[in-house]
Design a protein around this nucleic acid. Structure first.
Lengths: 189, 189
DNA sequence: GTCTATACGACGATAGAC
DNA sequence: GTCTATCGTCGTATAGAC
């Protein structure tokens, strides 16, 4: 769907850069990766790359946004909501990208950081989705109720996903799938 | 206990640098903080600072180690083992230091990183402590048993602590104390 | 052992020509 | 829209004074 007008080529190049950046970070990790390497992979100069993005942090933020949108699209395509096991499997498997996510989340604590808005939006949305899933399972009686309300349970479930990834980053023997199953077991009646 | 011999002064300066680094990162965050700023706060030149540390990452790793040792000493002093609420309260309250911890954990995924050994040791030790605490509470019957074994429960509890901090970093409205209470409520009989 | 001065290469960022 | 050239700052390395 190549757009005509002044935006056609630019938009394509922009996405090519984002894809290249994703590859570089997946391959070589977040640390020690420079924009010049990303630019080289696109056969472009550094200022040429910077024409499309305000800063390195801006580029990284858009990489994250791109991943989220892709995951969201995959979810909608399948129709049903993701199971907890699938959610925990989403970001994992690629240490460089998990590292990117975690490092960005830390940096985004500064309200002035470009990714701050992304995460500030992402967590409430994620919580809502988890709450909806929990409520429906509470109604059908497959999940314990009356101990911790769904809203606060969602906070915990998301924390487990993020926290497990952090542990896994440094100790690959941690079994993320087992952890997901254990969490669900604790919630069952 | 100022050591005599050739090490007295140097060791004191080394600790002064570590304390100064801790302050700078607590004040200005992990991002955008340079060794030159830390050196300036110690009234020393940059190479003077680097005399005590192999690299920036080495310094940061030792800052983390210092915090862990301080927390451990505080725990031993009190005699009793930390409650879960106290553990979750430990690192929090200072965004810059939480940011430091998270960023370092992400970077330490690389086995070549100086902090890799630190985290690779820290998590198993932490898990053992949590397992011991869980076992004693399982024996006295104040905690559910038979659903998830203590070893795997420990992995989850630590994940919640780390994950909650990540959420809190970007959304300060998240109530970490409430989360800690909720986790314990789920484990109770 | 403790420390200063100086310098190096790489980084992200910007100015201005084409 | 993309380039060359350049800037200031970063982490790091070396030489050498005391």
């Amino acid at each position: 769907m190549a757009k005509r007008g002044p935006y056609g080529k630019g938009e394509a190049k922009r996405k090519e850069i984002l894809r290249a950046a994703l590859e570089v970070f997946a391959d070589e990790g977040y640390r020690g990766t420079s924009l010049r390497k990303v630019a080289a992979r696109c056969a472009i100069s550094l200022p040429g790359l910077m024409h499309y993005f305000d800063s390195k942090e801006d580029l990284l933020t858009q990489v994250l946004r791109m991943r989220d949108e892709a995951a969201h699209a995959r979810q909608e395509e399948r129709g049903a909501s993701l199971s907890y096991r699938e959610i925990i499997k989403e970001g994992s498997g690629t240490p460089g990208l998990v590292e990117l996510f975690v490092s960005m989340a830390a940096a985004a604590s500064d309200p002035a950081h470009p990714a701050h808005a992304h995460f500030a939006r992402r967590y409430p949305v994620l919580r809502e989705q988890v709450v909806a899933s929990l409520r429906s399972r509470m109604d059908t009686g497959t999940i314990r109720t009356g101990i911790v309300p769904a809203e606060r349970l969602a906070v915990l479930l998301i924390a487990v996903v993020d926290g497990i990834q952090l542990q896994w980053l440094v100790d690959r023997s941690v079994d993320m799938r087992q952890a997901a199953d254990d969490v669900m077991a604790l919630l069952e009646v």
